[in-house]
Every structure is written in structure tokens, then in C-alpha cells.
Deep mutational scan, measured.
Amino acid sequence: NQASVVANQLIPINTALALVMMRSEVVTPVGIPAEDIPRLVSMQVNRAVPLGTTLMPDMVKGYA
């Protein structure tokens, strides 16, 4: 199964993503693939992302 990017902490709106904020986990539904974690670093989220939430492409500015 494909691992997705999951929030490792609460990520406030407009926060630039850092490695420590993300982990990979096999979840349903599938979100952003875990292999894209390096690409996500320094991109901003466009909403608050609670701990344990799967990151979806529409949550990250400039990802989709």
C-alpha cells in the first residue's frame, strides 16, 4: 500500500512545512504520496491541519 503524508503536529494556516511536521503512514483515503515529502518542505498550507490529518493536494499552496 502507498504511504501518504500525515501531519505530525497541528500545522497552523499559512505555515511553511518542515520535515518535523510530517510523517508517512498508510491511510485511507490516500493523500499526497510520502515520496513527495522533500518537495513539500517550505510550501505553505492554506488551512489549519490538525495532528494526524492526511495532507491532500488542495491543502498545500502550489502543490497541485
Results as ranks from 00 to 15, higher is better:
1 N>P: 15
1 N>L: 15
1 N>E: 11
1 N>S: 14
1 N>A: 14
2 Q>V: 15
2 Q>K: 10
2 Q>G: 14
2 Q>M: 13
3 A>R: 15
3 A>H: 10
3 A>P: 12
3 A>W: 15
3 A>M: 14
4 S>W: 03
4 S>M: 02
4 S>L: 01
4 S>N: 00
4 S>D: 00
4 S>A: 02
5 V>W: 02
5 V>M: 01
5 V>C: 05
5 V>R: 00
5 V>I: 09
5 V>G: 01
5 V>A: 10
6 V>C: 04
6 V>N: 00
6 V>M: 04
6 V>A: 02
7 A>D: 01
7 A>N: 01
8 N>S: 12
8 N>F: 04
8 N>W: 04
8 N>E: 08
8 N>P: 00
8 N>C: 04
9 Q>S: 09
9 Q>N: 07
9 Q>V: 12
9 Q>L: 11
10 L>M: 11
10 L>D: 11
10 L>V: 11
10 L>K: 10
10 L>C: 06
10 L>S: 15
11 I>W: 02
11 I>C: 03
11 I>E: 00
11 I>D: 01
11 I>A: 00
12 P>S: 11
12 P>R: 09
12 P>K: 08
12 P>W: 04
12 P>H: 08
13 I>D: 10
13 I>K: 15
13 I>G: 11
13 I>S: 12
13 I>L: 10
13 I>T: 14
13 I>Q: 14
14 N>T: 04
14 N>Q: 08
14 N>Y: 09
14 N>R: 06
15 T>F: 06
15 T>A: 12
15 T>I: 07
16 A>E: 12
16 A>G: 10
16 A>D: 09
16 A>S: 08
16 A>Y: 13
17 L>P: 01
17 L>G: 00
18 A>W: 06
18 A>Y: 06
18 A>V: 10
19 L>Q: 09
19 L>P: 09
19 L>A: 14
19 L>W: 09
20 V>N: 14
20 V>I: 13
20 V>F: 14
20 V>P: 13
20 V>G: 14
20 V>T: 15
21 M>E: 02
21 M>T: 03
21 M>W: 04
21 M>S: 05
21 M>D: 07
21 M>I: 02
22 M>S: 01
22 M>A: 00
22 M>R: 00
22 M>E: 02
22 M>P: 00
22 M>T: 01
22 M>F: 06
23 R>L: 05
23 R>K: 13
23 R>M: 06
23 R>Y: 07
23 R>G: 07
23 R>C: 06
24 S>M: 10
24 S>E: 11
24 S>H: 07
25 E>I: 09
25 E>H: 08
25 E>G: 11
25 E>A: 12
26 V>Q: 10
26 V>E: 08
26 V>K: 14
26 V>R: 09
27 V>I: 06
27 V>M: 06
27 V>C: 05
27 V>L: 05
27 V>Q: 04
27 V>G: 03
28 T>P: 00
29 P>S: 03
29 P>W: 03
29 P>D: 04
29 P>Q: 05
29 P>N: 04
30 V>E: 12
30 V>Q: 11
30 V>C: 05
30 V>S: 15
30 V>I: 11
31 G>P: 00
31 G>C: 03
31 G>N: 00
32 I>S: 01
32 I>M: 03
32 I>C: 04
33 P>E: 04
33 P>H: 11
33 P>M: 08
34 A>L: 03
34 A>K: 06
34 A>N: 05
34 A>Q: 06
34 A>G: 12
34 A>D: 07
34 A>P: 06
34 A>F: 07
34 A>E: 08
35 E>F: 15
35 E>S: 15
35 E>M: 14
35 E>K: 11
35 E>A: 15
35 E>W: 13
36 D>G: 05
36 D>C: 05
37 I>E: 01
37 I>H: 02
37 I>Y: 03
37 I>S: 04
38 P>V: 09
38 P>T: 10
38 P>R: 10
39 R>C: 06
39 R>H: 13
39 R>I: 10
40 L>W: 02
40 L>F: 01
40 L>R: 01
41 V>M: 06
41 V>A: 05
41 V>G: 02
42 S>R: 08
42 S>K: 13
42 S>N: 12
42 S>I: 03
42 S>H: 14
42 S>A: 07
42 S>D: 12
42 S>V: 03
42 S>Q: 08
43 M>L: 15
43 M>Y: 09
43 M>N: 04
43 M>E: 04
43 M>W: 07
43 M>A: 08
43 M>R: 10
43 M>S: 06
44 Q>T: 15
44 Q>C: 05
44 Q>P: 07
45 V>C: 04
45 V>P: 02
45 V>E: 02
45 V>N: 02
45 V>L: 09
45 V>A: 04
46 N>L: 12
46 N>R: 10
46 N>W: 08
46 N>D: 10
46 N>K: 14
46 N>Y: 08
47 R>D: 06
47 R>C: 06
47 R>S: 09
47 R>H: 10
47 R>I: 14
48 A>G: 07
48 A>V: 10
48 A>Q: 15
49 V>A: 04
49 V>M: 05
49 V>K: 01
49 V>L: 09
49 V>I: 15
49 V>Q: 02
49 V>E: 02
49 V>G: 02
50 P>T: 12
50 P>E: 09
50 P>M: 09
50 P>R: 08
50 P>Y: 09
50 P>W: 06
50 P>V: 07
51 L>W: 12
51 L>Y: 15
51 L>H: 11
51 L>G: 13
51 L>S: 14
51 L>A: 14
51 L>M: 14
52 G>I: 03
52 G>P: 02
53 T>S: 12
53 T>P: 00
53 T>E: 10
53 T>M: 12
54 T>H: 02
54 T>D: 02
54 T>C: 04
54 T>W: 02
55 L>Q: 00
55 L>A: 02
55 L>I: 13
55 L>G: 01
55 L>S: 01
56 M>T: 13
56 M>A: 05
56 M>Q: 13
56 M>R: 09
56 M>G: 04
57 P>W: 10
57 P>S: 06
57 P>G: 06
57 P>Y: 09
57 P>D: 05
58 D>N: 08
58 D>A: 13
58 D>W: 13
58 D>L: 08
58 D>T: 09
58 D>S: 13
59 M>K: 01
59 M>I: 05
59 M>G: 03
60 V>L: 07
60 V>F: 04
60 V>T: 02
60 V>D: 00
60 V>E: 01
60 V>C: 03
60 V>W: 02
60 V>P: 00
61 K>N: 15
61 K>I: 14
61 K>Y: 15
61 K>E: 13
61 K>G: 10
62 G>E: 09
62 G>K: 07
62 G>Y: 08
63 Y>E: 03
63 Y>A: 03
63 Y>K: 03
63 Y>H: 04
63 Y>Q: 03
64 A>K: 05
64 A>G: 13
